[in-house]
């Protein structure tokens, strides 16, 4: 199923835990350092580098673009490191996260309360995911290098719904199905 950003309430409502999706449109990259900067900006009463309503953040720090490419390898990093920051951004209107690995109970709660969604991209498939990125623009914090906020235009970026807006979590449900005791 193709999913377009920014995410509407209707789109989010139709996304079910465990479904494969192809993401299309604009997404924003941010990892540890950029998150810290965004949350500090909000605390100082400043605006975020992009309007967060309905938008999606991809937790990634790509390799530098070699000549002839717009971006290098670009797979997801561990989402849990952004747990301290994600609730604040979700409460400001952000509606989607793309990453890998479990989220804290607090973030899961905020995802449910705000009607948001957590997508999983395959960790270690940075070359494959890179081929779905069609445009790249450094939007903010260029001094952070690979950790700068990049505005990406993606076409059919493969992802899976890890946590839907109803609170279903693939990391729990998937494992329970295959665990042998």
């Amino acid at each position: 199923m193709r999913v377009f950003t920014p995410l509407s309430e209707q789109t989010i409502g139709s996304l079910k835990c465990g479904s494969n999706v192809l993401l299309n449109g604009i997404i924003y990259t941010a990892r540890d350092a950029a998150h810290k900067r965004m949350v500090e900006a909000l605390a100082a009463g400043e605006d975020l580098p992009f309007k967060p309503e309905g938008q999606v953040i991809y937790f990634v720090g790509p390799t530098p673009a070699p000549p002839g490419r717009i971006i290098g390898s670009a797979g997801p990093t561990t989402s849990g490191r952004m747990d301290a920051y994600s609730p604040i951004l979700l409460e400001k209107g952000l509606r989607g996260l793309i990453g890998k690995g479990p989220l804290s109970a607090e973030v899961l709660q905020v995802i449910k309360e705000t009607g948001s969604v957590y997508f999983g991209a395959i960790g270690g498939a940075g070359a494959l995911l890179s081929s779905c990125i069609k445009k790249v623009e450094v939007l903010a914090y260029p001094e952070l290098g690979p950790e700068a906020i990049h505005k990406l235009e993606v076409e059919d970026l493969p992802a899976i719904v890890l946590v839907d807006c109803y609170g279903n979590n693939l990391y729990e449900l998937g494992r329970a199905k295959y665990q042998l005791t």
Binding site: R69, S73, T77, I122, A125, G126, A127, S130
Partner: peptide, 19 residues
């Protein structure tokens, strides 16, 4: 996907993983 990723990485000389 991981096998496909390996093919793309080797063909295009870009890292298997960004880390």
């Amino acid at each position: 996907s991981l096998l496909k990723n390996a093919e793309i990485a080797a063909e295009q000389s870009i890292p298997i993983c960004q880390d």
